[in-house]
Write a protein that binds this DNA or RNA. Structure first.
Lengths: 205, 205, 205, 205
DNA sequence: GATGAATGAGCTTTCATTCAT
DNA sequence: GATGAATGAAAGCTCATTCAT
């Protein structure tokens, strides 16, 4: 009974997220109104505030659930690369491209992204842990296959994610342009590639 | 004296366009307020209405002046292709990509684009004529070099632009997605390539 | 409880309409601001939009509720005429005068009336039906009193209203003057009189 | 030369008044913009301020020139009445009706009329003098025809105008309604009739 | 949990008015 | 005399957010 209630509530929450996702994709963040979302979710505009703190919160949850789905795909795809180094590099570059696209898709301005970022990071921990675990598993495979012998796989995985995020962050906010769509991530990508190569070389030495 | 006055007014107009361009790029169309533009152009919000009909009009003029600049670059770039067929195909595809990017850049929703399109087309005539003249000159080179002998170069140029625009239009509005950023123009691109090839073959036959 | 809530909302709506009616009568449509109405109704300007679509909508509802009241008076008054023909003619002419006066009263320009007319007609259906029923009852009295024997009273009533409205419409918009206050309805009035006479004669034949 | 300039300037002034009159009649005072008037008078909006102090001033001049024209007609018409008493009463009542209609025609609110009134009165002196002279001439005819012998015709004429204006003023501003169109002047009219009768009787006694 | 009702802040747009030239 | 240019004030309207029920 209790569980059913929870699942019912959870269901409503998913309905809202689905509605919001559609709206954000169609009209962009600014143009989407809470009335739009409420109408599709068959819920009064005011009721959305029972499930979410505010419009921004809804948006973060939408991006987060999208991210979880997409990140998994990227992870599977990266596993098909030839060697460990390439698996890692491919994954880190692909996820950077993903975040760039998702922000662009929802037509957010850099200004807004800067506002949202902190709260996003806060909520993002669960996904990040999962990403670290993923990278760790690749590294462990390397250890298992005797490619190298360093056992601090968790720490290395953490560092890799941190570096990748830092590079993405730098590309986003230190860019002289203030427009997301025109940010050039190519330098960040090659930096990631290089660093991955270096770290792997270091491990194997 | 008279000339100076004209240039002063023209200068102010350019100042506004520059300010607007920066704002639209930073915040997107929706988030940009006339106060934003006015503040940068050092002009009262109401004064903008002396130079432009409304916010939409400012936006159209911004895109238009950007377009003129960019189109010229694309034209120069396309001239470097090996042969006439490739010059034309490259130009037509590049300009399609450009329009996709510019709309995306300013974070417009498909809904808004559909509203703006008619007025945009109206103002766009001058650029279009220039584009036709450009294609015509390429075709004339072909006639001069005896690659083919059809002298209706103007008409052919017109038809090429018309076809390219029609394909772009189809890709934009017949797309099942309502989100600009995710529209797939690849099919439109290959269609343009194919049609250019066919027309050139027809001319040479 | 539930009923009380409905009546409370309905009450607020009436408060707004009353406030709006006073303002429109005092200042005219143009000069009346939503702040004026809100202040009298003790409601934030924005709250008016919870009850009405826009300023025009408020105005239409005001005129409509005024109309319902007035039309009833005219109907009672017309019943005092000597015979059926005069009852009908008096009613049709009086209501035309009423609409002329109400538009003039609220100081609307012909331009604005032309814009408002379509929405007004749409909402006006309920009043119109009531008017038709009224004329029908007069005609039925005629049948009962054996003045004539045609039983299509409803249809005849409908036709009479339609004709009267058409003549009013013609007088309003085909007038060479563009100023409501100076429109001459006298020709329309005599046309209505004549047609009523003719139709009644036809019925009695 | 000098005279020609004056007449040219006078001509421009008349052009503006004609343009303004048309606009006010079409759109009413509020809806008429200085751009509207300027466009019809083929003059820049700012230039209107060379000829008139402000929008209100233009309006007053329009009404004034209309008044001069109309007052003359009323004066001719009143002369056709049977006797002196009726001539005077008819004239005083007709001019009251005229002012009521002219204000209504231009869709002014009572509020605005109250603002305009003082300046109007100020400018209105010339017309008023002419009106007094007119009434005086009727009275003089009475003296000439030996209907009565009081020779203070000027003073009596002044008193009559003053009384008529006072009654109009009272009807306008002491009315419990604040809407011009619904002001009831019938009481004022009968008061004028009565007073005219009394004064004439007094004169003849 | 859900919602009707209310609001403050902010947006685009209009317009009478001013002033240097 | 005439006008291009500029502006303050105010209008209608939208929307995220709040709160009592």
């Amino acid at each position: 009974m209790e569980e059913q209630k929870i699942s019912k509530s959870q269901q409503k929450l998913q309905t809202i997220l689905k509605a919001a996702k559609d709206c954000f994709a169609r009209y962009g963040y600014e143009k989407t109104t809470l009335d739009d979302i409420g109408k599709i979710a068959r819920l009064n505009k005011a009721s959305l505030y029972y499930y979410f703190k505010n419009k921004e919160d809804i948006f973060i949850q939408v991006v987060l659930s999208e991210a979880k789905e997409c990140i998994e795909k990227l992870q599977k795809s990266a596993l098909e690369a030839e060697n460990i180094e390439q698996k890692i590099a491919k994954y880190l570059i692909d996820r950077m491209r993903y975040y760039r696209d998702v922000l662009n898709l929802h037509q957010l301005s850099v200004i807004l992204v800067q506002e949202i970022q902190p709260k996003f990071d806060e909520v993002y921990q669960s996904v990040k842990n999962e990403e670290i675990t993923y990278l760790e598993s690749i590294l462990k495979d390397g250890v298992q296959a005797k490619v190298f012998q360093n056992h601090h796989t968790r720490q290395i995985a953490e560092v890799l994610i941190t570096i990748a995020d830092a590079l993405k962050h730098e590309a986003t906010f230190r860019s002289n342009t203030l427009d997301i769509a025109s940010i050039d991530y190519s330098e960040a990508e090659s930096k990631i590639e290089m660093i991955t190569k270096l770290i792997l070389k270091g491990l194997m030495a």
